[in-house]
């Protein structure tokens, strides 16, 4: 199947003794937006961080099962985690631009990949900022500190920074949860545009956001994947009772 980007087979994750993900199996389609929903603490972030191996940073984590990206198990011993993360970018819940200039924030990724040519860097910076729909706001102050931007701008800058290393997959962990409604809608619009070129997986606790932005939705509960399907189906006639309870706001 060409249009499935990620196959997850029986993936379980333990924080020490605690099993935080329980035998997750799912397929994530390419060039689509997949939303992960569920009550807080159900393992959405944990699952998302499995996809680019950010959980490697936590010493107590142990993972079993398979995570196949384009058919390659990213947890295989021969796979270099650095290369994985170049292909699978991540946008965090709390915007985290570097304490550097706006320009340097975007140029950082290409630079560590060995790109030195100034004109090429300039081009990447502009293209990335345009893609993230923030170019017009910052083009006159690329040399200013990125920390002087507003929260919404910072988050779009972080998206631009991720785009600058040209990944295939973009993971977003509640990217708009700390933002005002206007910034939120900008981010949603952005997600919508980006899916032409990228496979996007977005965690959200906002039902409307999931409904608006995503093509597919996966519902997590207590570390288990309860149900996954077309967003339309999940929100109108879910198969599971728990899913229905959650999206109608009866718990969580």
């Amino acid at each position: 199947m060409k249009d499935i980007k990620i196959h997850v087979n029986d993936l379980s994750l333990y924080y020490g003794e605690k099993k935080a993900l329980k035998e997750i199996s799912m397929q994530i389609p390419a060039n689509k937006v997949t939303a992960l929903i569920g009550p807080s603490g159900c393992g959405k972030s944990t699952f998302l961080r499995c996809i680019n191996r950010m959980n490697d940073l936590i010493p107590s984590v142990r993972i079993t099962g398979e995570m196949l990206v384009e058919g390659i198990d990213i947890y295989d011993k021969n796979v270099d985690v650095v290369n994985i993360r170049k292909k699978i970018g991540m946008v965090f819940q709390k915007s985290n631009p570097f304490p550097k200039s706006i320009y340097e924030n975007i140029a950082y990724g290409p630079k560590i990949n060995g790109l030195k040519d100034k004109t090429q860097l300039d081009e990447i910076v502009e293209v990335s900022l345009r893609q993230a729909a923030i170019w017009d706001e910052v083009k006159d102050r690329l040399g200013d500190s990125a920390l002087g931007l507003s929260g919404g701008q910072q988050q779009r800058l972080c998206i631009a920074r991720t785009l600058a290393v040209s990944p295939d997959i973009i993971l977003m962990d509640e990217p708009a949860s700390a933002l005002d409604p206007i910034s939120t809608s900008k981010i949603e619009e952005l997600v919508h545009q980006l899916k032409e070129q990228y496979t996007i997986i977005i965690v959200t606790h906002n039902m409307q956001q999931a409904a608006r932005t995503s093509d597919h939705t996966a519902f997590f509960y207590m570390g288990e994947l309860i149900e996954m399907g077309k967003t339309n189906t999940i929100f109108t006639k879910p198969l599971q009772k728990q899913t229905e309870d959650y999206i109608t706001g009866r718990f969580g």
Binding site: M54, L57, I112, N113, V165
Partner: peptide, 24 residues
Amino acid sequence: TFTEASLALGASKWQTAFFVTLPA
């Protein structure tokens, strides 16, 4: 969060240490 951001961009540990942590 700076370290995470850098690693998520595909920087290696030492690149992160020298180009993000140290300057900060």
